[in-house]
Structures are given as C-alpha cells and as structure tokens.
C-alpha cells in the first residue's frame, strides 16, 4: 500500500502572537513541532506499511526550516519526504494550500492519503477534506481507528461527538485522523542515525502544474477581518463552601444537565 501523509509544522506554544496587519500568525522565534494529529497520521501510516509491506511518503508545505521536522519523521521510519517551499506559497489559506498539496500529490503513486484532523495553529480542519475534493477522492474525516484493510478498501471508525460510525472507504481515498487514534511511536536509533543522509525532495511552484491565481496570500479567498483575544467573563458568583456542600452543589448541576 502506498500511503501519503500530509504533515504541517506548527508553533509549539499556546500563546500565539498575531500579526495585526493581516491577521495571520507570527511564527518567528517560536519553536516548531510536527502537528500532533499529523503525527498520529504518520503512526497509522507506518502501521499499515508494516502490515502491507507498503511505502510511506510524507509531504509538507512550509519554509525551508520544515526540513528539521521531515528529518525527524525519517527518524520515525518514513520512506520518503517531500518539502513544498516557495515564497509564492506564503500566506496561502486552506484553499490555496489544498491546491498546492493536491498538485504535488498528483506526482506520486498512492492508495491512501492520511491527514491530521486539524492543525493546532489554525484549527480549521479544512485542508484534508479540500485535498480530497480537489483530487476527486472519497474521504472519511475524524477517523478514530482503522480496523481492516484490503487492497480496494479500508474499514474505519469515525468518531462523532455522541457516537461512532464504522465506514468502508474505497481506495484510493483520504482519511483525517484524531490524535486519540494512536500514540505516535518513538524515533528509533537506526533511523535517526541515517535520517540526514536520506534524500529530501524539495519542490517549488515551478515544479507543480499550478497557476499563480491558485496559490499564496493574494489568491486566498479567506480574508481575516479582525482577530481578538477572547476575554473570560465570570458569569457565576464565587461561592465559598465546605467540601460536602460543594460536592452536593456540583452533583445537583451534573444531575440537572443530564
């Protein structure tokens, strides 16, 4: 099974700075990590690779510093890594990003594409589904587990808030996965030691079959009108109670809501 995993490098912080000019995130000076949901995607891909004697290729779009993340994924055991980097890609919203990723994906053989549910910086959960749409592939989002695989289909459990659905996805297809699905494996010494010797394919705008009106900030239909920090408004009064009274009060509320 040929598996492609979409991975995003994100800032490792909850305190994000926002560029007031255009409402996008300031990434300079913040440590970067692989997006947690995406790492779960890599883990699932590696498991499927082991079961099917398959091949795992990770693709990311980002600045050249994203190479560090890709070397780390080699350390986990992925077979190939692709970096999509170009100044013309800068400022792409999810639609433009999906155009770029889809154009890159067309260059490689694949049976399954795995994306994380959403990135911890933008939290849109849009790129995976948009890539599936752009490529005309069936998709299942919010995948909690992969329970069965065949050459022509995958059986997955999709997690909704209140229930779980078991679905069969014809291949080639795309899934987006939840962090809860798998704990990503550790890097291993053998793959870490060779991670920097492996080839890293770097693609720019010129390598892809794309037009300029489909990439970058100017082509992005998303316009950030305003960003603001949510203020915490205290709605309930503070009560000082004994542990027994506090427990009774909490219980009353819990029972009342269910």
């Amino acid at each position: 099974m040929n598996i492609l995993v979409l991975v995003k490098q994100v800032p490792n912080t909850t305190e994000m700075m926002i560029d007031k000019e255009n409402g996008t995130l300031i990434r300079a000076g913040v440590e970067s990590i692989a997006n947690p949901d995406d790492l779960t995607g890599v883990e699932l891909a590696l498991e499927l690779k082991e079961k099917t004697n398959g091949h795992v290729r990770v693709i990311t779009m980002g600045p050249t510093q994203a190479e560090d993340m890709l070397r780390g994924l080699y350390g986990m055991g992925v077979d190939d890594a692709v970096l999509l980097t170009d100044k013309r890609f800068a400022g792409s919203d999810t639609w433009a990003t999906s155009n770029i990723l889809s154009a890159a994906i067309k260059r490689y053989p694949y049976d399954l594409i795995i994306a994380g549910r959403q990135a911890i910086d933008g939290d849109t959960a849009q790129v995976g589904p948009q890539v599936a749409e752009a490529l005309g592939l069936p998709q299942v989002t919010y995948v909690h587990d992969v329970t069965h695989y065949e050459t022509s289909s995958l059986t997955v459990i999709k997690s909704l808030e209140e229930e779980k659905l078991t679905l069969r996805l014809p291949l080639p297809g795309l899934i987006t996965v939840l962090s809860e699905a798998r704990e990503p494996r550790y890097l291993n010494v053998k793959d870490v030691m060779t991670a920097h010797q492996k080839p890293l394919e770097t693609l720019t705008f010129d390598d892809l079959d794309l037009s300029l009106d489909a990439v970058g900030l100017k082509a992005s239909p998303t316009r950030v009108k305003r960003t603001y920090t949510k203020e915490i408004v205290q709605k309930s009064p503070v009560q000082t109670l004994s542990p027994e009274d506090a427990a009774t009060l909490i219980l009353k509320h819990v029972v009342g809501h269910h």
Binding site: R71, G72, G75, Y186, L187, N188, V189, V192, M193, T194, A195, H196
Partner: peptide, 16 residues
C-alpha cells in the same frame, strides 16, 4: 555533535 546527534537528543528526551 553532528545533525544526527541533535535529532537523537530529541528522541532520548522524549523516551526518558
């Protein structure tokens, strides 16, 4: 350290 040793440090840190 070479590059691989820096990457190895991240692996060891997580494992430990």
């Amino acid at each position: 350290y070479e590059q691989k040793h820096h990457l190895y440090d991240t692996m060891l840190k997580a494992f430990v």
